[in-house]
Computed example of a mutant assay.
Amino acid sequence: MATPTTSRRTFLMASLGFTATKLIKPFSHQVLTAGQVIDRIKASVGIPWREQTVDNLIAGTPEIPVKGIASTMMATLDVLHRAADKGLNMVITHEPTYYSHQDRTEPIQQDALYQLKRSFIQQHGMAVFHFHDHWHGHRPDGIATGMIRELGWEKNIDSQNPRLFTFQETPLAQFAQGIASKLTIRTMRVIGDPQLPVRRVMASWGNVSLMPGVPYLAQADVLIVGETHEWELVEYVQDAIASGQKKALIILGHLLSEQAGMKYCAEWLKGFIPEVPIEFIASGEPYWRPDLPAK
């Protein structure tokens, strides 16, 4: 038979144990769902959520328990495999998962590759969230912020225009090489005299059409874009140079012209999602040069 002292000690320890269990239970057993992650993004992005937007849960359901989050530029099959291998079952992607800006699947419902990708996501209990419009709408623009940080251009920004940068005069070839090195680009394309002195630079990350490409170019020595139609802005720049204008165009490739913005997104997410690991997974540059080893 236990002594009164033992009974009191046992009772006290049991009481403390019960209290400790109650205190840690909400943290250790709390389930964070994909829907809750999206709700926190909506609450934290700093702008009203649009009714018409591509920013939606593209795969999975809001009820899926989140074990970890991957932030990426493009949810390619390769990225999905790497995320699954790391136990990151929610993927936040800036660009589409299913090959169109709106992630429309009607035209590819019978496509074997689409079915393979959809099945992989389902089999691994994954959720994929398209985060494009509101990340650009964040102030400052989340993609631009990440790109400027990656390039180290914070001190070069024009105070009146966040797309415009001023540098010490540098030959175009050297300036372009510096960008390629910092972003690890294999397939950058440049139009213009390699010796052109570069001081004022306009950067428009991602896809740029003829308009606003033309007025952007008018404000700078060189315009930097991710991609553009070759029969529009590329032809315009060629004609501008042929007419005697001292201009240049640098084409980075869409993916690498925005990728650092999703690297920054991973850091941003950590500020209000502490429960699960969050990691940036880089999408591979899709192109390679025949004179360089393909990765």
Score class of each variant (00 low, 15 high):
residue 208 V to L: 14
residue 233 L to F: 09
residue 53 T to W: 02
residue 5 T to D: 09
residue 276 V to M: 15
residue 155 K to T: 08
residue 54 V to F: 05
residue 106 E to V: 12
residue 229 H to Q: 08
residue 37 V to I: 14
residue 125 G to N: 13
residue 76 T to R: 07
residue 283 S to E: 06
residue 76 T to D: 11
residue 191 I to F: 08
residue 186 R to G: 04
residue 102 Q to E: 08
residue 226 G to F: 00
residue 92 I to F: 06
residue 41 I to A: 03
residue 157 I to V: 15
residue 156 N to E: 12
residue 190 V to Y: 02
residue 238 Q to P: 02
residue 224 I to G: 00
residue 209 S to D: 12
residue 80 L to D: 02
residue 74 M to H: 09
residue 46 G to C: 07
residue 223 L to P: 00
residue 44 S to V: 04
residue 73 M to G: 07
residue 33 T to M: 07
residue 198 V to R: 00
residue 166 T to A: 08
residue 6 T to P: 01
residue 226 G to K: 01
residue 10 T to H: 04
residue 230 E to N: 10
residue 97 T to M: 15
residue 269 L to N: 03
residue 213 G to P: 01
residue 22 K to I: 10
residue 292 L to E: 15
residue 108 I to F: 04
residue 29 H to N: 12
residue 163 R to G: 13
residue 238 Q to G: 06
residue 187 T to Y: 05
residue 166 T to I: 13
residue 183 L to R: 09
residue 92 I to G: 02
residue 218 A to N: 08
residue 148 I to T: 15
residue 148 I to M: 14
residue 82 R to I: 10
residue 69 I to S: 01
residue 145 T to Q: 13
residue 78 D to P: 03
residue 232 E to L: 03
residue 255 L to G: 02
residue 102 Q to K: 11
residue 43 A to G: 07
residue 54 V to N: 05
residue 33 T to I: 13
residue 54 V to H: 06
residue 168 Q to F: 15
residue 197 P to I: 13
residue 96 P to W: 05
residue 261 G to P: 04
residue 29 H to S: 11
residue 193 D to M: 07
residue 228 T to P: 01
residue 135 W to A: 09
residue 172 L to M: 13
residue 187 T to I: 10
residue 209 S to N: 13
residue 185 I to S: 10
residue 77 L to C: 08
residue 59 A to T: 09
residue 41 I to M: 15
residue 149 R to A: 14
residue 259 Q to D: 10
residue 95 E to S: 07
residue 152 G to N: 08
residue 139 R to F: 07
residue 93 T to K: 04
residue 28 S to M: 12
residue 246 K to N: 09
residue 253 G to E: 01
residue 27 F to R: 05
residue 216 Y to S: 13
residue 173 A to S: 04
residue 26 P to E: 13
residue 123 Q to A: 03
residue 6 T to M: 05
residue 52 Q to K: 04
residue 243 S to D: 09
residue 200 R to K: 12
residue 282 A to S: 14
residue 204 S to V: 12
residue 115 Q to H: 15
residue 10 T to G: 03
residue 225 V to R: 00
residue 45 V to K: 06
residue 99 Y to C: 10
residue 162 P to M: 14
residue 285 E to G: 02
residue 228 T to I: 07
residue 98 Y to Q: 06
residue 48 P to R: 05
residue 87 G to C: 14
residue 120 F to P: 01
